[in-house]
């Protein structure tokens, strides 16, 4: 595969891997997506987060040209999603969210068939992926557990090293060990300059692998954030312990302190922005213990967007 030289990769003319412009797809029974605009750059892992039924699968199936938008344009690698669909799919690996396999075939036959249709997939690569995920290729699909079926789907998506991986809930049904393996495979793909678009309703999963997160709710894109920015912008949580009852008003006057709860000899502070002023002042005071922690991404999203996965 051709490696893009660094000076080219930063050129402004470079096409994003995925570009959705004002895409609308509504269903008669409700659901779908409305006025979706989104771009994904080469080499990034984009996490598409939202509760079930929010429009994640609709968006993904639009990219694959399985369904067509009512309005808006969809381009992948600069190509038209519908007109150039075959050329696009040559470069895309796709794991459906509601994965169904050919029940009458063995895992080997399913993967052999798909590898043949995909073209230039080395069978050795399929075997290597299967081994990495601990998948027995000999067994008929109908005898496989949910997790093993999911592995077949993941191998099918990854084989042939496609430039873009579109994965709908990739780790659902997998045990934690295999989940980590999959995350590593995705990071490795991104490390090679390939692009990953993955959907999930589980925030911690997205947080673990994604560079950017898009939050979709009721068919509309509510927010797109870099995970790193989200972390940086976030308030830090400082827990301080004293050998006497702390002076709450004095703590609230420290720079950046937004909230302060006092219980017994302990104070819990929320500090935004630069920490040095507040931490310096506390350290110079007569405290006995001090800890600073970052909120989890889960807490951040809950704070910023009122995100509730059950909704």
């Amino acid at each position: 595969m051709l490696q893009t030289a660094p000076h080219q990769s930063s050129a402004p003319t470079r096409e994003p891997v995925v570009r959705l412009e004002a895409v609308t797809k509504l269903y008669r029974g409700g659901g779908g997506v409305r006025d979706l605009t989104l771009t994904i750059e080469p080499g990034e892992i984009f996490g598409f987060l939202g509760p079930n039924g929010a429009g994640k699968t609709t968006t993904i199936r639009l990219l694959l040209d399985l369904i067509r938008p009512s309005q808006g344009t969809i381009r992948l690698f600069g190509l038209d999603a519908r007109r150039d669909s075959v050329a696009i799919r040559r470069r895309v690996g796709y794991l459906p969210g509601d994965l169904a396999l050919y029940e009458r075939l063995s895992a080997r036959d399913v993967l052999g068939h798909l590898a043949h249709l995909r073209g230039d997939v080395a069978w050795a690569e399929v075997l290597a992926l299967a081994e990495q995920l601990d998948l027995d290729l000999q067994r008929p699909i109908r005898t496989l557990s949910r997790g093993n079926r999911q592995k077949v789907g993941i191998v099918a998506a990854l084989m042939g090293r496609p430039d873009l991986l579109v994965l709908d809930e990739p780790t659902s049904g997998l045990d934690p060990l295999i989940q980590r393996q999959v995350h590593e495979l995705l990071r490795a793909a991104a490390g090679e300059g390939r692009t990953v678009f993955l959907s999930s309703h589980i925030l911690s999963e997205v947080a673990e692998v994604a560079d950017r997160v898009g939050l979709i709710r009721a068919g509309e894109l509510a927010a797109v954030e870099r995970v790193a920015d989200l972390r940086q912008r976030a308030a830090h949580l400082i827990d301080v312990r004293y050998d006497h009852e702390p002076d709450r008003d004095a703590l609230l006057r420290l720079p950046g302190v937004q909230r302060c709860d006092v219980s017994g000899h302990e104070a819990h502070l929320e500090v935004a922005g630069d920490l040095r002023g507040a931490v310096g002042a506390i350290a110079a005071s007569d405290m006995t213990d001090l800890s600073v922690r970052e909120p989890t991404l889960e807490e951040l999203f809950l704070a910023f967007y009122d995100y509730d996965p059950s909704r």
């Binding site: 694959l64 075959v86 509601d98 994965l99 169904a100 249709l117 099918a156």
Partner: peptide
């Protein structure tokens, strides 16, 4: 109906 069409049409066939 068996929902395998997503897998089939993920490959580069028209």
């Amino acid at each position: 109906e068996r929902r395998t069409v997503d897998l089939l049409l993920a490959t580069p066939v028209s």
